[in-house]
């Protein structure tokens, strides 16, 4: 496999590759949290409770936002400036909505008596979803920059701008996928 890498030329752009590497690194952080969760759960003294529904509904928000950004990207490539800008703004608001609704989820947890300190089973939910929300906010920041490009620069699909857009898109899909993994994890480990 390595031997076939003739000439040492690689067709993936270095910045894209670097982003993938960064995603792998972030993934390891969550792998650590979720493994710690399993180890701690196995040790007993683990409060069981039902995850508030809002966390499930909210999944739709982040999935829709991923779709919207993908749509914006297709519009960008097809030269449809209005769609490109509109869908990007939609993504931005869906991203913000996701974070706000996660916050509502934490409120819902407190209403069923699960506070940060109550029991590690709850603490883990707060920590994991909180660190995830922080990564989503990072993505929202990147979206702000992308929107500035969209609205302040004349519309032109140069390779450089396409690349930048693809970087944001990849990261955004990544945080969405990450949430799916985390939610699936919570469901399967059944807290």
């Amino acid at each position: 496999m390595l031997a076939n890498e003739r000439q040492g030329r690689n067709k993936i752009h270095p910045q894209k590759f670097a982003l993938w590497a960064a995603c792998a690194s972030i993934m390891m952080m969550f792998a650590a949290f979720t493994s710690a969760y399993i180890v701690r759960q196995a040790a007993g003294n683990w409060l069981e409770f039902r995850l508030p529904d809002i966390f499930f509904y909210n999944t739709a928000t982040i999935l829709l936002s991923s779709l919207a950004l993908q749509g914006a990207y297709q519009a960008f490539k097809a030269g449809k400036a209005a769609w490109y800008k509109g869908l990007m703004v939609l993504t931005f608001f869906l991203g913000l909505a996701f974070v706000v609704l996660q916050y509502e989820g934490w409120q819902a947890l407190t209403r069923i008596g699960v506070f940060l300190q109550t029991n590690p089973s709850g603490s883990f939910i707060y920590v994991i979803s909180g660190v995830h929300a922080a990564h989503v906010l990072g993505g929202v920041g990147a979206l702000v920059v992308a929107m500035m490009h969209a609205f302040l620069l004349p519309f032109k699909a140069t390779p450089r701008r396409k690349l930048r857009f693809e970087l944001v898109l990849t990261y955004w899909h990544f945080v969405g996928f990450l949430w799916l993994y985390l939610l699936g994890f919570f469901v399967l480990t059944g807290s």
Binding site: L2, A3, I12, H13, P14, F17, A18, A21, A22
Partner: peptide
């Protein structure tokens, strides 16, 4: 991230991994 990316993507012509 930089080291990995540089080794994989910026090798000069003829510099295969081996």
């Amino acid at each position: 991230i930089n080291y990995i990316t540089t080794v994989l993507n910026l090798r000069t012509k003829g510099m295969s991994m081996w």
